[in-house]
Amino acid sequence: MGLLGTALRRRAVGQPPLFGWRGLIVYAALLVLMSAALYMIFIYAPAERVQGDAHRLLYGHVAVAWLAFLAFGIVAFASVMYLWRRNPRWDSLAVASAEVGVLFTTLTLISGSVWGRHVWGVWWTWDPRLTTTLVLWFIYVAYLALRMYIDNVDTRRRVAAIFGIVGVVDVPIVWYSVEWWRSLHPVQSVTRAGLTAEMVLTLVVTVVAFTVFCFVLIRQRYLLERASDEGEGLRDIVRNRNDVLRQTGAPSAPEAGE
């Protein structure tokens, strides 16, 4: 409510809007998709024979898990583009995608854990998928930590891009190593009954809805990064100007700004 209310109020008092009409359409579509997904997950999709209603959690779980990996793919792509083109926009996309990726990976781990507690009776087990997702989460967090600890902007972008690429290359290796590692030990197999057509449709709608949500989040985070960069640049411009003004003895502007 707050979001829409603020947006309309700002439009009314003539402040620059938070999002244009195109944005409003996207948010409306998002709302419709998310409601549809909720309806289908809870009411439309039939109960499953073995797991009963618990399987309904899997629709959301599959969707956030896919997006966790997709976001990391975007980090890698943007990192390669940054090293190649050296355009800060690619770096902004990489950091936006990494942060949203951490969020989705966290959601994957939590929803998977809740489901596992119910179906397997444990919160955690060293299943290859779980393990790989956990490692993915660690790599994302390391990526963000690395960025946080480097002060020089150019160095930060460069180094983060390299780590982004290396991290993504590592993920399939982690997957194979965990798979082999676990295959040496007996693993309790999960019974997977066949999916009905309703279930498949529900899954598709849920994945689409969450994917749209994910892209909206990445876009917002990207815009935030660009805005901060602009603020950074503006502060530099004020300082440059003050340097010139000081030479001519004129009064200087306050060196404030975000």
Partner: peptide
């Protein structure tokens, strides 16, 4: 940085 990447 090293521990997650070195897991394999």
């Amino acid at each position: 940085l090293a521990v997650p990447l070195a897991i394999p």
